[in-house]
Write a protein that binds this DNA or RNA. Structure first.
Lengths: 212, 212, 212, 212
DNA sequence: GACTAACCGAGACGGTACGTCCCGTCTTAAG
DNA sequence: CTTAAGACGGGACGTACCGTCTCGGTTAGTC
């Protein structure tokens, strides 16, 4: 039996000490890295759709089994490679003004999505459609990270009295992130900072006429 | 060369006269319907991911070539089957009140997405990720239909003075539809009428405190 | 380098003193026996073709390396297990009559081949086809044993004047044993005592008309 | 369902008109020949053990499925290639003397077995050990052909009074062919014409002293 | 009524990737 | 120095579909 797939979730979200089995040859860090490296390489050069387990194995100089031993599926593999790589540096601006914070947050997001990040994110989401188990992981790792970051920004806004005290932050998060994902997926309009600012401001002020 | 794929777009959006070749055996309506029927059957029973051209041909008792002759790809095939089927009945409520109209619009949408519609929509979107050509079609057929319907509702709101005259309706549309798609794809929360109403109201009123 | 494979040959044919290394943990008799036991088990339950080193190790609760350390290949392993087990008891009848001796010899052989012995013998021979090194061992251990036994019977026949003095005993051996192997492998006819007797008598008397 | 594997048996043994299904693309003779050619090539250059379906497909420039479509297994594939190739030219000498006929028959057989024929025959027999279904085919195609040829020679000997009228020709066949197979498989002695002649003569005259 | 063109089903074709199995080697900690 | 455990690179397995192709057989005009 395989040693419990290191469902990237564990590795990423918690400090839990990846319990190495006492006996047997230990996992090769070289291979591990070679695989993740190959994934990023292929992701970059040929895109998410062209990435196959077989191709990764070939490119990494690794047996296929070695991949199947540690990752349940292609998207989990990509997720780890991608999450490890772009690990991170989610901006959590705190300038004292929720509008400025949000604009900063979404301008950054849009910028990143116009790099390699965009296609990969789309690919991961697409794969999650077919694979519920992976959706769970994607949600718990990648999506949750972004939601949490945003949520903190919003919470600070509420604390400062810059957002209504009774605002449903979950729905607000869905609205803001949803709009970005929607443009990312449908690709009917640009994801630029103009859009980011408009989105933030409209969302804060609403579309109904003010001050009636 | 095949006789111009009847890219469902044409068939659905315009009245353009499907140029029938002058001579030769005409297209078999039986086969046409058998194929679309098989697609819906499989979509329903086994899901979008398990749908293959080979399987459709088998299930419909039709040669593979017959499918490739008339449809460029799996997702286009599905799109026609699906669009023909759920053809339509997009609600375009007009009650004189933009809030009521929007609530009605999104409650209906959420309800439909909780039936068979949801998985198929997700599947179509997933395929669009891998196939840009199909994305174009999906966008122009299915997505645009919904956007246009919503846009009309919003335009009436503006006309009635219930929405700010300077509102960017495109961004507003992205925001509203994006939130729904986001929940549909990520599946972290229910798509129910509570959500629909909250979404509409928050979007109209904004999250910033009013009447400062 | 491994400690000289105890090519079963050595173990079986000679008394040569299995040179034990002076230091370090001694060979585990438990493991040794567990392996041989597993081999016989699998041989019996799943047949020769389904026997793999990996399977033996699993079944015996033993590391693969432990097998590779002591046996060069699957067939050598099987040979030791099998030879140890059916060790021996080759009948070497000596009733004073070569015909009777031979009939006894071959009736016994046929009987044994109709038990478990048959499939294993066929499997060993099959493996020997692919592995010349193993063929050598099979020939020197199992085959030679039988040839030698038969040869002695024949030699006694010559001594008694019951076989022609100028008979080529090697060819005779090939003829008798070959017929049995041939039926065992081709399986076009039964290996029963009727066959054994017919074989012996025809071989002794020849097929040409006598006493012209 | 595959179109009934052309179990080489049918093709070779009888005149039955390989009923081509009326519909669908017909079998490609080019591919068929390319595959058989590749088999013989590999058989010749790398030997029976190194022959894999994958390798044949690669070498023949053919999809794996095309092989699996028409042949059930590696040995059946080899059998057709080999039988088609060495199809054939089994000597059926008829010189009026059974001794001469048999010597001619077995000298020829030994000679052929010392060419490529030998290893392939051994390989086929080995595979038959693991695959009963194939054993049946091997027996009915290759083995039976040789048995029948020999049997005719023997029958003529009986007719001419050169063999005992009551001789059990089946056992005699087993004896003669068995001795050859035995040497072929065990490889403890040469398969040369000296052996062939000795075998034939001893078999005819018997090992018991004559003219008592 | 024959000809021609485009259709139809069937299904074979060269490919690519799948996920599994086992090979024989290697690298641990424990005994 | 052996042991059990088990990861490693490799390679073949047999299967599923891909999109293309090639048959014999329809089913309409057009000549």
């Amino acid at each position: 039996m395989p040693p419990t797939h290191n469902s990237s979730k564990d590795e990423l979200d918690s400090a839990e000490a990846e319990v190495r089995p006492v006996r047997g040859r230990p996992r090769s860090e070289d291979s591990h890295e070679a695989v993740l490296g190959a994934v990023l390489d292929i992701l970059d050069k040929e895109g998410y759709g062209a990435l196959t387990i077989e191709g990764v194995a070939r490119h990494a100089g690794v047996g296929k089994q070695t991949i199947y031993r540690w990752w349940k599926s292609k998207p989990e593999l990509v997720l780890e490679a991608y999450a490890n790589h772009s690990a991170s540096k989610l901006p959590m601006p705190d300038k004292g003004d929720v509008t400025a914070d949000l604009e900063s947050f979404f301008c950054g997001a849009c910028k990143r999505l116009n790099d390699i990040s965009g296609p990969t994110m789309r690919g991961l989401m697409a794969d999650a459609v077919y694979d519920p188990e992976f959706l769970e992981i994607l949600r718990d790792v990648l999506i949750a990270k972004r939601r949490d970051a945003l949520m903190q920004v919003l919470a600070r806004g509420v604390a400062r009295g810059q957002l209504r005290a009774d605002a449903d932050l979950v729905v607000m998060t869905d609205t803001l992130l949803g709009a970005v994902w929607y443009r990312l997926l449908v690709q009917h309009a640009k994801l630029d900072s103009r859009f980011a600012k408009q989105l933030v401001n409209d969302c804060l002020n609403g579309y109904a006429p003010r001050g009636r």
